[in-house]
Design a protein around this nucleic acid. Structure first.
Lengths: 133, 133
DNA sequence: GCTTGACCTTCCAGTCACTGGAGGCCCTAT
DNA sequence: ATAGGGCCTCCAGTGACTGGAAGGTCAAGC
């Protein structure tokens, strides 16, 4: 398989696949003309990576997970630990975004949004403390 | 004011303040010895930027907001539009993270996490479709 | 006057995970 | 012979900083 076909079947862009080879996540063979020669095994790994990335795992997590996937002697506890840590990272990000969202939506609601210049959003950014003063 | 004092009072690291000068968000004067000379006005702007960044606005949004803040002829509708667009970006990110979270937490719950190698997390990443098959 | 240490300067490189583009080779069809 | 599409490598850019090296400046203490 050439890279184009692997890209189609894995859903990853060719650029990304080359990048994954660069950083050692896949090691396709080469044809005599220099083209990468992917086997089913490589395609499988790339699909695995694509799925792991859509779940938000970092590249380093992906590397670890791929290693565990190919290690017959793994313990599921190792996989679970990686996933749980990632889950906590996600939860932390959600919390931060929701905190931003709360503040911002209050401000947006308070802003009349017309032709006049006065604006509670700017006042807040400029450091007014409308309630705790 | 030297950069250290501005850093303390704005809560931004000196490196970040220099970076903001690099990209033209603040333009401090200079002392004869080459040190940056910040006025109250600069500190105010930096605090504004720090607050806007904690609300998740991009640097380019911050530039726009700062411009509006300093423009007496602004209309609050312009500010509100920037904020609303950012709010939608945040909502989209939250949705994506919650979708990841849902999938991942199902998988984590399904994984017994012991010494045995079989693991539903890896099975999912490898492309099994446990239910729709 | 000298040293020490804190503070300041610039510049370069690295982060993360790609992505775009230039310049050029390879392959197939016409 | 040529046109096109696919493939190759290498370099640079993204966003928003952050770390570190190499060196100038300043105030305090001896």
């Amino acid at each position: 398989m050439n890279i184009g076909e692997v890209a189609d079947r894995s859903g990853l862009p060719p650029k990304t696949i080359r990048y994954y080879e660069d950083i050692g996540l896949v090691r396709p063979l080469r044809h005599d003309n220099g083209y990468r020669a992917f086997r089913e095994h490589d395609l499988h790994k790339l699909a695995f990576l694509g799925r792991a990335r859509t779940l938000g795992f970092s590249i380093e997590d992906c590397r670890t997970l791929l290693g565990l996937y190919e290690d017959e002697t793994r313990e599921s506890a190792q996989v679970k630990a990686v996933a749980e840590e990632h889950l906590e990272t996600i939860d932390e990000k959600i919390r931060q975004l929701q905190s931003m969202r709360a503040t911002l939506s209050h401000l947006v609601e308070a802003c009349h949004g017309d032709h006049r210049p006065d604006c509670p959003i700017l006042s807040d950014l400029a450091g007014s403390q409308p309630k705790s003063n």
